[in-house]
Design a protein around this nucleic acid. Sequence first.
DNA 1: CTGTATCCTTTTAGATACTG
DNA 2: CAGTATCTAAAAGGATACAG
Lengths: 123, 123
Amino acid sequence: MIAPVRPAPPPDCPLERYLHIVSGAWVPRILWYLRFGPRRFGDLRRDLGSISTKILTAKLRTLEEERMVVRTELLVSERQRQVEYALTERGLAFEPVFEAMEQASRRLTELDLLEAREAGAES
Amino acid sequence: MIAPVRPAPPPDCPLERYLHIVSGAWVPRILWYLRFGPRRFGDLRRDLGSISTKILTAKLRTLEEERMVVRTELLVSERQRQVEYALTERGLAFEPVFEAMEQASRRLTELDLLEAREAGAES
DNA sequence: CTGTATCCTTTTAGATACTG
DNA sequence: CAGTATCTAAAAGGATACAG
């Protein structure tokens, strides 16, 4: 039997369950900032820098629906509100992904440096 | 000195180098399918199922610019063209991320099952 | 087979003002 | 403080036709 010219097609992409939730520019960042413990609405807003309240609310709502985060309303006083967002067990399931992303980011920066050095040496 | 009411803010999000490249619905999937070795344009199109040629081309171009993939034109005959896309060393840097995503996806499915079982048991 | 080109729709996000 | 409402802009994606 002769080896096939083309390799067998790869298995179906099993990333859907993840990508369905984490796609978009903001969600990964939101989840990343929640890794360090519960954070309030305003905290996240500051963490993320340039996000509009509309988007932040929307993303937090869908993350809630997916049960990746829980929203807890803390009643501090009659006139003041505090709302805290925290990762659920499901949210925690993505921890290793973010760790890997961080590592990959670092690796890329490393490759950038190596390359810059080579470019400098050859001139 | 009294302990601060609010914990210190988390460090700056170090995911940018990654997110800059991999955001969007298609890029993660493209990279995932390239993990198993070089693939041709048409292969990827079939792998991805519903992608339009326009988007596939566009994504492959930017991945090329970022040097995550290399494009190799194989001249088979005068009239036939074959183009192969493969991960570069940079592209390989994202492998652990995809592995973590797969694991996370599995974990989520597991949690779904556990929950469904509990819901069944309590009725 | 590997794309371009064009047009159109959907999604995502930003700005700003306003509420309890 | 934690949002909602509204309007607008930009980005991403899809459909289809066509070219080398």
